[in-house]
Design a protein around this nucleic acid. Structure first.
Lengths: 218, 218
DNA sequence: AAATTAAATTAGATATGCCTAATCATTTTA
DNA sequence: TAAAATGATTAGGCATATCTAATTTAATTT
């Protein structure tokens, strides 16, 4: 007994939003992420509530149940494994895989997912640095420190991106800011909080606050 | 502008049936293959006709248009490439891949298909011996000679299977009758037209007429 | 050629997943 | 705290893809 693509998509975004909205996920935010109007979201929430995949009380934010979270994690696992596959084996760029993985994440076959995982040698993180849940739904702690949080003089490593948009990814790639890149913070401009950094000991470049906020570091 | 899974499935089976029903494919046969009742099929045929994917005249058999055939061949190409991938790279058995490939064949990404093709080194035939259409819809002639058509004393090679059912595939695999197997016809029993054969010069075994009719040979 | 059988279509219904317009509830602001 | 703004839900529709029951058309049999 499986779930529809629509249901899986809702559960996935509720999972993601629940990390940002611990008091319950709003109808509005779900609709915005899925590009779906809120009456449609309301309908689906009632349906997911009836199926005990979320805790739903009218006019209150929603929460995933254990079962709902399990399903969300399976979809996220598949999405991230397929993204890893596409980049590692098929040589796609990290900004090209999202649309394809959005489709592949709904393929229903437990055995396929596990063979994919094995084929990739059980990766812990996907090409954007996001952690990949294991078969039991265990997932590594997400990186949450961003470049804007460090002080002048720090040496850090890029371990993930918060913004997955093609535009952002292409831009930072053009600056050699890929996963694993070493970033040395030479200066922080007080006026606009922008950063002057060296990437892999290259020449100095400037990064806006917005860019820094979207780079996970360790 | 893509097509729904349902539409793609109809086009695929109409393509396959058109090889057997050159005077036009019947509503009934489409419904049987897709496990869908005929009124539903009628509705869809009208719809596909309006979209100029098939030539549809009420109460007459249907034909694919050039455009409809192109789409059918793309779906078949994806299905057969994915089956090849699953068997070659993920080590699935040839009787395990159908359900998964039925889903993967609808993934929409021209680039993905071409990279898959390249990753597999442009295979001509899938794990069941069926020819794989190329990017332009060109497809090798299907094998059409079956084992039941040869005479006592013939030496032939298994190049494909007509029946893709798990039951059939498992059975013939247990007899070492896989693709590439050498079959020597030792005798044909007149009473029931069954065959006595040696597989890869092993010991003699009997094959019913039905089994022989489902084995493509060269 | 008429009667029967088989196949195909139409009519009418259902579930999913989406929409807009209108209403209701909650939160924020003056 | 009352009014306004924001957010959520209900009401009513629509398209897709399916179904069963009834009807129509074509094919087969006598």
């Amino acid at each position: 007994m499986g779930f529809s693509h629509a249901e899986e998509n809702y559960l996935k975004v509720i999972y993601k939003l629940s990390k940002l909205q611990p008091k319950g996920v709003s109808t509005k935010s779900i609709g915005e992420l899925l590009q779906i109007k809120s009456p449609t979201v309301s309908d689906m929430l009632r349906k997911l509530g009836n199926k005990k995949l979320i805790k739903y009380t009218k006019y209150k934010g929603v929460f995933l149940t254990v079962k709902g979270e399990q399903i969300a994690l399976k979809v996220i696992r598949k999405h991230r494994l397929w993204e890893t596959f596409l980049v590692q084996k098929f040589k796609f760029k990290w900004d090209e895989v999202h649309y394809i993985a959005e489709q592949l994440e709904h393929i229903d076959s437990r055995e396929l997912v596990n063979r994919l995982d094995e084929y990739l040698d059980f990766p812990q993180f996907d090409p954007h640095g996001d952690p990949i849940p294991d078969e039991n739904g265990e997932i590594a702690e997400r990186h949450n420190k961003t470049l804007d949080q460090v002080k002048k003089g720090s040496d850090v490593i890029i371990v993930g991106v918060k913004d997955h948009s093609s535009e952002f990814l292409k831009y930072i790639e053009s600056l050699s800011l890929t996963l694993g890149a070493k970033v040395s913070v030479m200066d922080v401009i007080n006026y606009d909080k922008s950063f002057i950094v060296k990437v892999n000991d290259g020449k100095e470049i400037g990064l806006s606050l917005l860019v820094c906020k979207n780079l996970f570091i360790s």
